[in-house]
Design a protein around this nucleic acid. Structure first.
Length: 465
RNA sequence: GGGCGCGUAGCUCAAUGGUAGAGCAGUGGCCUUUUAAGCCAUUGGUUGAGGGUUCGAGCCCCUCCGCGCUCACCA
């Protein structure tokens, strides 16, 4: 097409011939001539069928056998139709693939240059169950996944260019860890051993720091056997990196740069519209101290309530609803989830977390109850989580044991003691900053989708029938 | 798991308890510059499944299945 336009500009008159292929998206036949739009991943073009060039026989064949959705190859020369659209005048064509089953066809109307689609496939169940049909008829859905892929490419490019090495660690793990979540359990027949699908990459990536890789990252799937929601999917894509000789403050800065870089690469702008609000990813992000943030939001200074009982008491006095009997850290987690998270529309780092909900993070100097940890929030949604990693094997072992005591023996969210991880750390692990981000959620923000299923190609659904 | 809502033709949607419809797609016909092509004709339904109430149920009631929203859950 470009060659044709160039030739037109230069006043060239030699016909440009071409062979093009794609899927038939519209057919308009009128006796001895007709038009059809043919679409492939690169766009669409109009085929012009005329009995003058094709002859009666081929014209009849087309009429008889071609339907919407079929894949066609056409050979001919490029021209402009009377209405100015570049079209391929066919001298021959071939059926490449037949659509036995009709696509849930949508019709496009171009009004003032804007494509208006009529009666498009819209039922979410059908769209997810038959994503292939959704993609085939809804170009904007294809665009979501192009953006998603471009996003992952950009994140990779950023980390590669900062000398991070991409690695792959086990998905099937004998002991799960690195997060507090219920795992999926599977079984290896020959080993006669139950295995868990990983809930995070963390413990394996940090083993690599012990091994001498100073900057590692992994992009892959985590599995958590928990409820689904607009921002939770049982399997989701996570990016984690670990950075030796860095702390959480340096990780914050790198995070800002990485997201801004992805914006530039993928969107060409650092301002996105999400849920009707403009979100500005330009660094620096807003930074909120967790303790101060809670004081401002609800007037509770967690420092003044050093144990669960006293904190529960003041929360009750404020008329807050919560599950009683939780550990102090869980109560604080509840507070920030309830009163802070939804208010963080613009990119915000919430930092300095209570120690007892952060068993892998390094304690803050001068305050043994707090750790050097931050979470990033955007659009009222938790996006990433990071901390200065705990690298003292004895402290780490104590934390695991502490965590174990907080849970009942049958609680699957219990973080089991990973002795090999402790052993690795005992060889010496460099101080480092670690980081994890929910790639699906970032894709939601980049594509202005408010359901994680819209950015996952094949979201899980119950079996039908 | 709880609450609310939805499920009608391939797709998008109508139908006070009284013979299930439209547009597009499909099929047949006309048409040599269309682009939601047009015109004429026409096919298409176990109204998610099962039960109940009623002379009569797409509509009312119950059970089940699926989906959505929401709450709970969730580093």
């Amino acid at each position: 097409m470009k060659a044709f336009e160039d030739a037109e500009k230069n006043g060239a008159t030699d016909p440009i011939s071409a062979t093009l292929a794609g899927r038939l998206r519209s057919i308009r036949l009128m006796g001895k001539l007709g038009f059809a739009h043919v679409e492939d991943a690169s766009g669409r073009i109009q085929f012009f069928l005329r009995v003058n060039e094709l002859g009666e026989e081929k014209m009849t064949f087309f009429k008889e056998y071609f339907d919407l959705g079929d894949f066609i190859q056409g050979t001919g020369t490029l021209t402009r139709s009377r209405t100015g659209e570049i079209s391929l005048i066919l001298t021959d064509f071939a059926m490449l693939a037949k659509a036995i089953s009709p696509l849930p066809a949508a019709k496009d109307e171009v009004v003032d240059g804007v494509v208006v689609r009529h009666a498009t496939l819209a039922d979410p169940e059908t769209r997810y169950r038959q994503r292939y049909a959704d993609l085939a008829v809804n170009p904007e859905v294809r665009q979501i996944f192009r953006t998603r892929t471009a996003l992952i490419t950009a994140l990779r490019k950023f980390l590669d260019s900062h000398d991070f090495m991409e690695v792959e660690t086990p998905i099937l793990q004998p002991i799960y860890g690195g997060a507090a979540a219920r795992p999926f359990i599977t079984h290896h027949n020959q080993l006669k051993q139950d295995l868990y699908l990983r809930i995070s990459f963390e413990l394996y990536l940090k083993r690599l720091l012990v091994g001498g890789f100073d900057r590692v990252y992994e992009i892959g799937r985590d599995f958590r056997n928990e409820g689904v929601s607009y921002k939770h999917n049982p399997e989701f894509t996570q990016l984690e990196f670990y950075w030796a000789y860095a702390d959480y403050l340096k990780v914050m800065e790198l995070t800002e740069q990485m997201i801004a870089f992805a914006c530039d690469q993928v969107l060409g702008t650092r301002k996105v519209t999400y849920n009707g609000q403009e979100i500005d990813f330009n660094p620096p992000w807003k930074r909120v101290d967790l303790r101060q943030g809670l004081i401002n939001a609800i007037g509770i200074d967690i420092q003044a309530y050093p144990d669960a009982a006293s904190l529960e008491k003041v929360m009750l006095e404020k008329g807050m609803k919560f599950k009683p009997g939780e550990a102090r850290g869980k109560l604080i987690d509840h507070l920030l989830g309830e009163y802070l998270e939804p208010t963080f529309i613009q990119p915000t780092f919430l930092y300095d977390y209570p120690r007892d909900i952060s068993p892998l993070a390094k304690t803050k100097p001068g305050d043994p109850t707090m750790v050097e940890r931050f979470e990033g929030f955007v659009g009222g949604m938790e996006l990433c989580n990071a901390f200065t990693e705990l690298n003292d094997p004895q402290d780490q072992e104590n934390r695991f044991l502490e965590m174990g005591r907080q849970f009942k023996a049958d609680d699957e969210e219990n973080m089991p003691l990973d002795e090999d991880y402790i052993h690795a750390m005992a060889y010496g692990m460099p101080p480092c900053g670690g980081f994890g981000i929910g790639v699906d959620r970032l894709a939601m923000l980049f594509t202005d989708n408010h359901s994680i299923r819209e950015v996952i190609l094949f979201p899980p659904l119950r079996e039908s029938e």
